[in-house]
Structure formats: structure tokens, C-alpha cells
Design a binder for these strands. Structure first.
Length: 601
RNA sequence: GCCCCCGUAGCUCAGUGGAUAGAGCAUCCCCCUCCUAAGGGGAGGGUCACACGUUCGAUUCGUGUCGGGGGCACCA
């Protein structure tokens, strides 16, 4: 048997053939792992232990039989049976040596796997209310979702990135009201500003701009704005709702302008922020269109016809307890307005109608109680809720000088994503955000993210890339010249280690896509960079021996390609040159990530 | 009360049911005449919270206990 592609799939085929004597191939999935210890070979197979019980034979005996019938291969150096029944496979150096050339030929395509098989998949993320600047929590969802989308794309999925715009709810009314109240003060119409309205400076800024554009046009007497409103202290929500109702009545058709202005400003601000962060969306889906197109009516009626809806206290309730929820939920409020939940049912039914095999929702961890009711409603409506996958992203807590730096109060006093990006740079922010499993709390160390030192994993990886660029530029040749390199000259232990690591990249992409775990890309890159630095310290690249030089250069050029692809998956730039600043200036610090993102999309 | 996440080295964390559990930082010791030292090499450091179970094998899966964090709206 000869090897067509990578060593692993080659070996799997060999084992499948050999194990065929015991079990039919379709019932067998061969599992090859990379042993932690080099003395256990390049790959270890546990199939003998798995078969031993069914066969009622000693696992080592089974291993013997399998080894005996392994087809001959020009990649395999030797096999060993070890421990309880592992079959350890040692490969000839040639098995790894050609990896570098494969990478150079494939270029940015290297790492592509066919896990998705072109399946249409949607990932919805961020979806923050456009009621104010994005904060550091949204940033994590953004970095995670964007990286995951990139990973899934490389893994063969047809990915659509979507942002759900909550442009229809009460929160938007509160923002419109808040803006208008600030505007009124510019005409000396003072209405006490409610504590539960939006307090941030950006609200006053919007009021200023409306005043600058339209002067007194939206001015109304302060006395009428607060008319008949319940007490702000004893009934803050009722107070706010009354003010909103008064605003709509007093402004009439002009209310839509104030509301629309606030929406566009905040949505535009968020979009710019995300774009600068290298986070791009294919679709911005408006909640308002769900109301206007009657999709929510349709969804609720559908549930109603199937007997999952009942009326109580003037509201319509969905019987979600029948689907595992702890409590039934309101879909149509007493005041005749649909809840966010109702919109979300229609929204998810609509996602499925748009032809996605699966939809991934990236939600903040505080929404976890929400999963069962949405899935329940989808099931009730006859959809397959299994196709909806919710990934919860836990909160990020910022630390500065060992102290918590994030204050999440409702008064607008939180650290924004823009502040964070300005402080640590896009690259560090993107990298640090995905350095932890998404479902785990993240301690974001601002000092570490900013430090231009070896402690900082972002620079460690980027520096590996820059070092390679520096060597290749000192050499001065073109990458095309490296395609003829004699890879058999790569024999040093550090060279073989690096070759193995590069060969592992497609498997890493596959696993990251399978587990929806972009953080494993970050860890892979740290390992890859470490091995590159190890090689750099051990071997000279620009040596006299022309053949050896080209072989080594082909290896580091391949490494550079994998680092580029990997960093692009995470939305982190791969600078060709890095220089350290003494005074802590960030002048030469790489910041742009947009280009990196586009390599993948 | 119910639900979710977590508990691995002094710290922050990796670890598809496999063999002697890893990395970075911190501590200690070494290495620039050489393609960027933002680098490399080495040492010490562990009851994988605890108990029971599942099995050839458990840090990994299940149950329970203890400890930490978060969530339970006619808000979105």
C-alpha cells in the first residue's frame, strides 16, 4: 500500500484492513492517538483492547494478530505491542518530511478539512441591544463567534454570520425616551431623569446632534411629559412606561424619528466597533420585521392550533412546562404586545425555513435559563430543536494590577469594548478572549495583554512568525524555489518535532470545529510557536550547504503558513516585523485585524 | 428551593476513556562573536476537591458530598 496523503489517514486505512478479520469495517472506527511520550511511537492504536472483550481473547494476543496482518507500508518503520495492548506505530522520517512541501503547495488551503461537507450552518452572535456601546462581555461573544465561524468555514461548512437586532422592544423605547428627555433640557424643558432610563453620556450626545440638526422641532412642554405618571420611586417601571406613552402621544409621527435616530446611531456605533475589531456579519436581522411581516402572529397561531397556548390574566401563555421548562411563559402580554420570547420563537422557526441544517446561538451565560423554553417552543411547533445549538459564553472579568477592573452597573459605568481595544490592541483582545473555553469564566489580565514581553502569548506567536519572515527575507529567494527542496535532509529532532506539529494542524481544525472550541487553535499555535523557537535556537537556517538550506527554509516557510492561517482563524494579525518599544509606546504594535479575517472568509 | 459552569503545580489554565498528568508565569541555575534574547536549555513543584459506581483501564463518564461562581421577569 502506498500513501496518498497524510500519514494518519494512511494508517487508519491499514488498521481498518487488518482489523477486518475480526469485525466488519462499517462497525469499526479506528482511533489513532498521538502518544504523549515519544518512546510510544508516532501513533498508538487501541483497537485490540476494544475488540478483546467481544472476542473473549487476550488484548495483546489480538494485537499480535492485527499487527501480523497489517499491510506493508513504505511509511512504517516498525510496530510494537505495548502496555495492556496498545499497538505503537513508529514511522520513517519520510512520513513527516514531505509535510512541509504539502503545506507550501496548499498555501492558505492547508488545514482545510471536509467535516462540514458543505452543510449550511448559521452562527448568530453578539446580537446586543442597540441601546448603548458594546461592553467587554459583548467583546467575548464577538471574538468567540467570529473565530468559531472562521474555524467552521475552514472545516468545510457554508457559514452565515448573523446579528439579531433587537429594534422593536421596550428597551429601544427607553433609549428613545432617554434621548428625548436629554434633548428637552436643551430647550430648558426639564423633566426629572428616571434612574432606570439610560444614563450614559452617549445619550446626551445623541440629543445634542438632534438639536443641532433640527433645533426646536421636537420640543414639547415638560409638564405634559410627566403627566399622569405613577411615582418614580414606588413604581419605576410604571413611571417609565407612562413617560414612553406620553412621548409617543406628544411626538406623534415624530416619535419614529427620535426612535430611529437613536437606533441608527447605536447600531452604527456597534457595527463600526465590531468592524474595527475584525468581526464581520453577513446578515443583520431585524426583530421589527418579524412583527411587521406577521411571522410572530403566525408562529403563535401555529402553537395555539396545536393546543400549547392558553389564556390567563389577559395574557397568552405558552405551556412550556410540557417541554421540560420549570414554568409556563407569556408570549402575548396583557397590553397586547408580544414578548421577546414570542419574537424569538418566530425568529428560530424562520432560521430553519431559511435552509440551515443547524443554527448556532452564541448567548451570554445569563441566558441559560432561556434555552429550554425556546427549544420547547420549537419542538411544540413541530421543528427539530436538536438542530438549534446554544453555546453559552461566560463573563469576562477584567483585572488590572491584580484588581477587578470591570464595574458592571446599570448607570452606564462599564468598560466598553472600544476602551479595551484602545488599551490592549485588537490582537491581544481577540487572542485573550478565545484563550479560555467559552463556557468558562475568563479572567482577562490587562497588564499581561499589554505587556510586550515573553509572558504575552500573542507576541510569542507573532514573534515566531516575524522571525521566519526575517530569515526568509535575509535569504532573499522566493517561496516557489522551495518546492524542489530535498526534505530528506530534515533529520534534526527539532525539525521532526516541528514537522509532526504541522501535520497535526488539520486534525486540530477538525477537532475545534467538532467541539465548537476555537480556543484549541490558540493552544495549538502556542505549541507550534514554541517548537519553532526551539528549532531557531538549535539550527542555523542560512547554511553553506545549499540543499540543507533549502530544506530548512521550506520547513520554516511551511510553519509560517500555518501560523498565518491559525492566527487568521482567531482574527489576529501576523506581522512580518516586530520591534520592542522601550517606553511602553504602542506605535509599532500590530493592531489591524481586518485583513487577517478576510483570508478565511 | 431549582438549574448551569467550575474545582488539575504557589498563580492562570490545557488535557478526543489509555501508558510515567502538561504549558506559561512565579522561584532557582545556565546560554547572545551567530538569521530579532519579545528567544533557548535545565531544576524543583501534584492526594487531578472528596466518596462510591460503570470497565480491561477514570483527571475524563454516572451518582452523591463539600467548596467557588452565575442564573431563575407579562426585561431584552
Amino acid at each position: 500500500m502506498t500513501h496518498s496523503q497524510d500519514p494518519k489517514s494512511h494508517l487508519i486505512a491499514l488498521f481498518q484492513h487488518a482489523a477486518g478479520q475480526f469485525v466488519q469495517a462499517e462497525h469499526l472506527s479506528i482511533d489513532l492517538e498521538r502518544p504523549k511520550q515519544a518512546s510510544h511511537g508516532d501513533f498508538a492504536c487501541n483497537v485490540a483492547m476494544q475488540l478483546a472483550k467481544a472476542l473473549k481473547r487476550n488484548p495483546r494476543e489480538v494485537a499480535q494478530a492485527i499487527v501480523a496482518s497489517l499491510p506493508a507500508s513504505d511509511l512504517v518503520e516498525k510496530t510494537e505491542i505495548a502496555g495492556p495492548g496498545f499497538i505503537n506505530v513508529f514511522l520513517k522520517p519520510a512520513a513527516w518530511q514531505n509535510v512541509a512541501l504539502r503545506v507550501l503547495k496548499a498555501g492558505a488551503q492547508y488545514g482545510q478539512v471536509d467535516l462540514g461537507k458543505g452543510e449550511k450552518i448559521q452562527i448568530e452572535f453578539v446580537s446586543a441591544n442597540p441601546t448603548g456601546p458594546l461592553h467587554v462581555g459583548h467583546g467575548r461573544g464577538a471574538a468567540f463567534g467570529a473565530s468559531l465561524a472562521n474555524v467552521l468555514t475552514l472545516a468545510g461548512y457554508q457559514v452565515q454570520r448573523e446579528y439579531y437586532v433587537n429594534d422593536a422592544g421596550r428597551q429601544m423605547d427607553i433609549l428613545a425616551l432617554s434621548t428625548w428627555l436629554r434633548y428637552l433640557t436643551l430647550g430648558n424643558q426639564f423633566v426629572p431623569f428616571p434612574a432606570n432610563a439610560y444614563q450614559g453620556d452617549y445619550v446626551s450626545a445623541m440629543a445634542d446632534s438632534i438639536y443641532a440638526l433640527h433645533g426646536e422641532r421636537y420640543m414639547r412642554p415638560a409638564a405634559e411629559v410627566g403627566a399622569n405618571a405613577p411615582d418614580a420611586v414606588s413604581d419605576p417601571d410604571g413611571h417609565l412606561d407612562a413617560l414612553i406613552a406620553n412621548a409617543k402621544r406628544l411626538l406623534g409621527a415624530d416619535y419614529a424619528y427620535v426612535h430611529g435616530h437613536a437606533l441608527e446611531e447605536q447600531l452604527g456605533d456597534g457595527r463600526n466597533d465590531l468592524t474595527e475589531f475584525g468581526v464581520l456579519f453577513d446578515t443583520w436581522f431585524s426583530e421589527k420585521t418579524l412583527h411587521e411581516s406577521g411571522l410572530i402572529d403566525k408562529a403563535v397561531k401555529q402553537l395555539q392550533q396545536q393546543g400549547h397556548i392558553y389564556e390567563q390574566n389577559g395574557a397568552l401563555w405558552f405551556r412550556s412546562t410540557a417541554f421540560g421548562d420549570e414554568k409556563d411563559r407569556v408570549v402575548l402580554r396583557e397590553n397586547g404586545i408580544y414578548t421577546y420570547f414570542a419574537a424569538d420563537i418566530a425568529y428560530h422557526l424562520n432560521k430553519f425555513e431559511r435552509g440551515f441544517e443547524r443554527v448556532i446561538d452564541v448567548w451570554g451565560a445569563d441566558h441559560h435559563g432561556y434555552i429550554s423554553r425556546v427549544k420547547g417552543a420549537l419542538t411544540a411547533a413541530g421543528a427539530d430543536a436538536e438542530r438549534m445549538i446554544v453555546t453559552l459564553v461566560q463573563f469576562a472579568v477584567l483585572y488590572r494590577n491584580g484588581q477587578k477592573a470591570s464595574m458592571s452597573t446599570r448607570s452606564g459605568q462599564y468598560v466598553t469594548l472600544r476602551d479595551l481595544r484602545a488599551e490592549v490592541g485588537n490582537d491581544a483582545a481577540r487572542f485573550f478572549y478565545v484563550l479560555r473555553k467559552s463556557d468558562q469564566h475568563l479572567d482577562f489580565d490587562l497588564d499581561l495583554a499589554k505587556s510586550q514581553s515573553n509572558e504575552n502569548p500573542v507576541y510569542y506567536i507573532q514573534y515566531a512568525h516575524a522571525r521566519i519572515c526575517s530569515v526568509l527575507s535575509a535569504w532573499g529567494g522566493s517561496e516557489a524555489d522551495l518546492l524542489d527542496a530535498n526534505s530528506a535532509r530534515l533529520e534534526q529532532p527539532q525539525e521532526l518535532t516541528l514537522l509532526r506539529r504541522i501535520a497535526e494542524f488539520p486534525e486540530t481544525v477538525d477537532a475545534a470545529a467538532r467541539d465548537l472550541a476555537p480556543h484549541s487553535i490558540a493552544y495549538y499555535l502556542k505549541d507550534l510557536a514554541a517548537e519553532l523557537h526551539g528549532l531557531y535556537a538549535a539550527c542555523q537556517f542560512l547554511v553553506e550547504d545549499e540543499e540543507l538550506k533549502l530544506a530548512r527554509l521550506s520547513l520554516i516557510a511551511a510553519t509560517r503558513q500555518v501560523i498565518r492561517t491559525g492566527l487568521a482563524l482567531l482574527g489576529v494579525s501576523a506581522p512580518e516585523r516586530m520591534s520592542r518599544e522601550d517606553g511602553g509606546s504602542v506605535e509599532d504594535q500590530p493592531e489591524k485585524t481586518g485583513a487577517a479575517q478576510e483570508n478565511i472568509a
